[in-house]
Amino acid sequence: MAFGPFLLLALMEGLVTAAVLSLAAVGLSLVFGVMRVVNVAHGEFFMLGAVIAWFVSTMVPGPAWLAFAAALIVAPVLVAALAAMVDGLVLKRLSYNPEATILATIGVMYMIQQAALSYYGPDARPVLAPFSWRLQLPWFGYSGYKLFVVLAAGLVLLAVWLGLTRSKAGLVMRATQVDREVAQAFGINVGLVYRGVFALGAGLAALGAVLYVPISQAHYLMGHDPLLLSFIVVIIGGLGSLRGTLVAALVIGLSDGVISMFFSPTLAKILATLLVGLVLVFRPQGLFGAKE
């Protein structure tokens, strides 16, 4: 294949990575931005989304699109409910102390992972894509489903952005992010906001996983990469900055696609981690984060 079409293919692959990554990373960024909690279990919420999608796909009879549509609803809702429980049983009891919650979410990470190993097993299992349409370009054919993933992620992110900037709930979340104490003094139930944000963050990760699993497989250890890449994205973009997270997800996703195809996926990860190091040294608040 000539260089041009090969580059186009790499960019398209990168765009798919960026789409899934941005969903996972926005969730992580929201949780840190509003709650100041570094959620190390975020990757496991992603994994659970994929695993639940597999369970739903085996339980819902009929065409693949029906099972997929059911998984798109069931997985984020169940994962969000689990996250709300984690908030109530763990994070709230630690008064959202930043250091304590890091340790606690490491514990939650292992609990979810080992529960998945026990009840789902060690095998990687496929989930069928809802349709098998292909886009035929002059140089190569490309999965129509992957393009759907990009479109769906774009729509979800647009909805999140509109929700944050145009709705009353978004206003309340932004106010809580700025000053938790003053927010309470204006009648905002900060505990409820935190629970909602933690559930939303986990639900977004699960949604990303449901979209991702038909082009990958569901596996109990699949949460590691999204967690690492999400941290890379939110550190580069600026913790708590939605705009920064989206831009960084695009940069990391596209560079991951291009470098992985032209060189190797390992080199892509090395360069992304190097970029994080540079950002932490020269602009610790991230490219779009506000200086504290």
Binding site: R174, A175, V178, A183, F186
Partner: peptide
């Protein structure tokens, strides 16, 4: 709420 606009700050005030 510094990053919010004046109108949004007043809106928070009027939530209840």
């Amino acid at each position: 709420f510094g990053p919010l606009t004046v109108a949004e700050n007043l809106e928070i005030g009027g939530l209840l």
